[in-house]
Write a protein that binds this DNA or RNA. Structure first.
Length: 246
DNA sequence: GCGACAG
DNA sequence: ATCTTGTCGC
């Protein structure tokens, strides 16, 4: 069995080696707690813009993809900004190293927005994928958060098997226990640490979201934020950005 | 030994 | 992620 530290992607020695080292190095910069003023204000009165970033792939064979960035007003969730452009992806997708494939382009998109329309800079970003819920505790949401210094939340649509977390019968039973929107259960690894939270984002779908801390936000705030962004199963910033990509 | 494991 | 039709239900 692979342990978190000794895990290496097969047939990708280079990425697994220096990629893992790079993640371990950057991980020290993650701030897994609330650091923003709005996070402390009642009703998040100071929160006005929530962003979403995503990459979508067309053909599937070539390395062409589309990076999309959207900014929604909060709490109205109306679209304030949307950007989408083609890029050439080079790194392959390997579970545990998604950031090396997608984050560079996300950073570009965020920097372009901050340069061209700084007044629309998102106060927090919802990212497809995980944050601390990761083989080395440094998923895409942490990676993007550290590189942009923006609060980030990881929102995965599927469970990443790590630290003993698996989609077994017990897990499915826990999912069945999520009866209504907002219901959650902690994702505790073998190590005893709570790596994230399974969240039922809406009443119509029983399939949960896997929320984890990316950067500059605590898990509880992250879960409440994601819940408040859900009109359907997929939180609006991510739903809009995926729509933008296709 | 094979397969599994975000997008 | 993406390939893909219809179908069941509110």
């Amino acid at each position: 069995r692979c342990t978190a530290v000794s895990f290496r992607p097969p047939a990708l020695g280079a990425l697994g080696l220096w990629g893992g080292v790079e993640q371990d190095r950057l991980r020290a910069a993650v701030v897994p707690e609330d650091t923003e003023r709005w996070q402390r204000e009642p009703g998040w009165a100071g929160l006005q813009r929530v962003g979403g970033v995503d990459l979508s792939y067309g053909g599937g064979n070539d390395g062409s993809a589309c990076v999309s960035l959207v900014v929604l007003g909060y709490p109205g969730l109306q679209v304030l900004y949307e950007d989408c452009r083609m890029v050439a992806v080079n790194a392959p997708y390997v579970a545990g190293f998604l950031a090396f494939r997608e984050v560079p382009f996300m950073v570009e998109a965020v920097e372009r927005l901050q340069r061209e329309q700084p007044e629309l800079r998102p106060q927090v970003l919802l990212v497809d994928g995980n944050g601390l819920l990761h083989q080395r505790g440094f998923g895409v949401a942490c990676h993007l958060g550290v590189l942009t210094d923006l609060p980030c939340v990881g929102v995965a649509k599927n469970l990443l098997h790590v630290d003993g977390l698996v989609k077994d019968e017990l897990h499915k039973e826990q999912i069945r226990s999520l009866q209504k929107k907002g219901d959650t259960f902690p994702l505790m690894g073998t190590s005893g640490a709570v790596l994230g939270m399974a969240l039922r984002g809406c009443n119509n779908s029983s399939k949960p979201l896997y929320v984890s801390v990316g950067h500059r936000i605590c898990l509880e705030t992250a879960v409440h934020l994601v819940k408040s962004c859900c009109k359907y199963r997929i939180p609006e910033p991510i739903r809009q950005v995926e729509k933008q990509g296709s």
